[in-house]
């Protein structure tokens, strides 16, 4: 994959720029959530679970051919839509790029309120989980 994390963020910001009200914006996020491929049951494990006060999120990461791919699911659809954006931005990049990435698109598309959403279910903690998983892959790479 040649497109950079930065380019994907710009794409998403562009996608969202056509919405002038929150209804359409959320309808789009809900659509994204519905489109996200359901996580295979074998990956809905306790270790992949990001437990929250409100909803459950599963986040699975794979490291193959030098890049990391993320797979996610949630029982709540807006959260699922928001993670699908994170998955779209961060999947297919090297662990190093993921760890070093600066995700500014959340702010730009007006979803910053979800960064601090209730307890561990916020986008911030999902993003952190993704970076931690990438960091572990990075350490493995260095060890090998």
């Amino acid at each position: 994959m040649n497109i950079s994390i930065d380019d994907i963020q710009k794409e998403i910001i562009e996608d969202f720029s056509i919405f002038d009200n929150w209804d359409d914006k959320y309808a789009y996020i809900i659509e994204c959530g519905k489109k996200l491929k359901p996580l295979a049951p074998e990956y809905k494990t306790e270790t992949n679970l990001v437990r929250g006060c409100q909803s459950q999120v599963w986040l699975h990461a794979e490291h193959k051919d030098g890049v990391v791919n993320f797979y996610a699911d949630s029982d709540a659809i807006i959260v699922k839509g928001l993670i699908s954006l994170l998955v779209r931005v961060l999947s297919g990049h090297t662990a190093e790029h993921i760890v070093k990435s600066d995700l500014y698109f959340i702010d730009k598309i007006g979803m910053q309120s979800h960064l601090s959403m209730t307890r561990s279910n916020g986008l911030a903690s999902m993003l952190k989980t993704m970076k931690v998983k990438a960091l572990l892959f990075l350490e493995q790479e260095k060890a090998n």
Partner: peptide
């Protein structure tokens, strides 16, 4: 419909 989804939309 998940309760969290409902809460987010009602807040809006």
């Amino acid at each position: 419909i998940h309760h969290q989804d409902l809460g987010i939309i009602l807040d809006k």
